[in-house]
C-alpha cells in the first residue's frame, strides 16, 4: 500500500517560494494563511539551506491524537485530512504539530467560508465533500488527487527539490540523487538525528 509523503531536497531548494505560490494559486488560499512555507536555515551564511514545509501527513499524526472533537481522518494512502464542520478551532492541533502546519483564518476574513476553523495542507486532496464540487473547493481547496494529479507545490517545483507521492518511490528517487552526488544523505535533520560522522 502506497503511503503519500512530501520530501524536500535541501541541496536543490533555491528558496524561490514557487511551491508557496503554486499552493496559494491552486487552492485560492487567502492572505494571512500559509499552508506551505519555505524556511531557510543559517540565512545569509555560506552553506545556508532552505526547506519547504507544510503538513507532513504523519503516519501517527499528533494533531489527530489531541483533537478533542476527532475531526481528523486518514485516507488509505496516508493523507491526513479533517472535517471543518466538526472542527471547533480550538488550536490544540497547532500546539501538537511539530511543523506548525495548522493555520487559523481570521474570523473577519471569513476565509474558506468558515469562521476560525483550522486550515492546513490537504495534499491537494480536498476534504469530506463530493470530489471536485464547489462546496469542497470553498472549504478545502482543490482536489487534484481525485483527478489523478499530485500536489501542485511539488509538480510546480522548478528544481524538483520538493517531491510528493508514494514514499517508496520518493526514497528511490532521492537515493539515486545522493549516489549521483557521491555523498552521504543530506536529508534535513540527519546530522542532529544520527551525528555528523554517520
Amino acid at each position: 500500500m502506497a503511503k503519500m509523503k512530501f520530501l524536500c531536497d535541501a541541496e536543490r531548494c533555491i528558496e524561490c517560494n514557487g511551491c508557496v505560490t503554486a499552493c496559494k494559486n491552486v487552492n485560492e488560499v487567502p492572505w494571512g494563511i500559509n499552508r506551505r512555507r519555505v524556511v531557510t536555515l543559517n540565512d545569509g551564511v555560506p552553506g545556508e539551506k532552505s526547506i519547504s514545509v507544510a503538513c507532513m501527513h504523519c503516519t501517527d499524526a499528533p494533531c489527530a491524537a489531541v483533537c478533542p472533537v476527532d475531526c481528523f481522518y486518514t485516507t488509505a494512502d496516508g493523507v491526513v485530512l479533517h472535517d471543518k464542520d466538526l472542527c471547533i478551532g480550538c488550536g490544540y492541533c497547532f500546539y501538537a504539530c511539530p511543523f506548525g502546519a495548522p493555520q487559523y483564518p481570521s474570523p473577519q476574513e471569513r476565509a474558506f467560508a468558515v469562521r476560525g476553523k483550522m486550515d492546513k495542507c490537504t495534499f491537494c486532496a480536498g476534504g469530506p465533500e463530493e470530489p471536485g464540487s464547489q462546496a469542497e473547493f470553498e472549504k478545502y481547496g482543490a482536489n487534484r488527487v481525485a483527478e489523478g494529479k499530485l500536489p501542485a507545490c511539488a509538480e510546480m517545483c522548478a528544481t524538483k527539490a520538493l517531491l510528493a507521492g508514494d514514499g517508496d518511490v520518493l526514497a528511490d528517487i532521492y537515493r539515486k540523487r545522493v549516489l549521483r552526488r557521491a555523498g552521504r544523505p543530506q536529508t534535513w535533520g540527519w546530522e542532529k538525528a544520527y551525528g555528523a560522522d554517520v
Binding site: 481528523f72 488509505a76 493523507v79 488527487v145 489523478g148
Partner: peptide, 29 residues
C-alpha cells in the same frame, strides 16, 4: 471520526488509482 464520509478514502484503496498516481509521480517529478 464521526464526520462526513470522504469518497476519497475508498478511492485511495484502489490499486488502479495508486498506480495512476505512481505513474504521474514518475512522469512529472
Amino acid at each position: 471520526y464521526k464526520g462526513q464520509t470522504d469518497p476519497l478514502v475508498e478511492m485511495s484503496a484502489d490499486p488502479a488509482y495508486q498506480e495512476r498516481l505512481r505513474e504521474r509521480l514518475l512522469m512529472v517529478q
